[in-house]
Design a binder for these strands. Sequence first.
DNA 1: CTACGTTTCAAACATTCGTTTCCATCAGGG
DNA 2: CCCTGATGGAAACGAATGTTTGAAACGTAG
Lengths: 222, 222
Amino acid sequence: MAQTDTVTRILDTAEVLFAERGFAETSLRTITSKAKVNLAAVNYHFGSKKSLIQAVFARYLDPFTERFHGVLDELETRHAGGVIPLEELLESMARTVLEVPAERNSLKVFMKLLGLAYSQAQGHLRRYIQEEYGSVFTRFTELVRRATPELPDAERFWRLHFVLGTVIFTLSGLDALRDIAEKDYGEHVSVRDLIRRLRPVVVAAMNAPLPEAPVTDRAEAS
Amino acid sequence: MAQTDTVTRILDTAEVLFAERGFAETSLRTITSKAKVNLAAVNYHFGSKKSLIQAVFARYLDPFTERFHGVLDELETRHAGGVIPLEELLESMARTVLEVPAERNSLKVFMKLLGLAYSQAQGHLRRYIQEEYGSVFTRFTELVRRATPELPDAERFWRLHFVLGTVIFTLSGLDALRDIAEKDYGEHVSVRDLIRRLRPVVVAAMNAPLPEAPVTDRAEAS
DNA sequence: CTACGTTTCAAACATTCGTTTCCATCAGGG
DNA sequence: CCCTGATGGAAACGAATGTTTGAAACGTAG
């Protein structure tokens, strides 16, 4: 089937280029020429560039959410009725994130895309991801809530986003950081090595003491 | 002097639009029309769009680096010869970051721009920032090194970037996150409130226990 | 007042972009 | 065999982009 071949080749090429340069900076002509398909193929198979971008994300996020739901199912039945420990939840998520892209491409690309989706703030992409895949994240946070009853809801919300920032930021900027680290410390770091370093930091962040009592809140800067 | 007025108006407008939409997604026509200056003014005063982007960053980073050098000077003389505690270093940096943009615009814009500079990975911008302002960061990390002698060099390097990721990611995506937090927890968070929440997390992250011994390192995914 | 360097302005330029169109190719079922 | 629907391919379209141009307007020193 030639169709599948063309579609796959477009997606494979697009995700790499998107990750390297960003969405707006990657033209359809660059994608199609490097993928050795016709320029019109993108609009024919995907409808528009915007849909192509979403398709690139869907190819990562669809397997991830499906698998992660399965992992959470298994975790919940194993701790039937009880509370799943925080570290186990984090471990499961990390493992799932690691497994999914390993099947096809590199984790680096996936993380870079996630980082872009968050910073390339505007409109359609963040909304698309939120509305399409928000349910898994909601389920996960609910489990985290039960695992950390001592944390106020708002505090837990922010800390989850703190560690999310750590992971996405680090792994999406991995190449540049790795170059610096290698130059300065002569040490080559693999993704698995980085995750090994991340684990105690993330756990410590989630278990950090609560901030001092909120001072009388004055008007803010922004 | 009309020149200064035009230049300032361009910079003021550009930084807001860049922060909202990204660099490539913001055209010179959008900037100049909203700033009520002529289209050619950008190329006349800045030379090119690329230089305008760098000028936007310079207007934040120049005062920051200058002031931060001063703060570090003061810290070093106060602890003459001795070691500056880690928390004091982090506090000083946070305070400096907070003070500089408060003079003109919002911290949010500055952080958003930083986030963009990191994700919008490619080429000129990251190199520009690194080569132009890398010295302060080098000086800072050296002081952190003396404050945390128990940390291996590589570990400290990565942890600094971990917390850098936390801060930039959180503060650059602040608006979106704030909306969610407000909707889910009815709680309005100010920037200062967020920093109050960040502090114990960052300290805990830096002081986290060392990761377990490096397992035999197999080939990595990417 | 005049002359000159600086700044503003409208218009145009050349390029690049996403998208569309139209035709060739090919497969399988009537 | 021819018809039909799906796909590949070349070319063109219209819009938007960054940049350049040349003249007008401005402020100021002589």
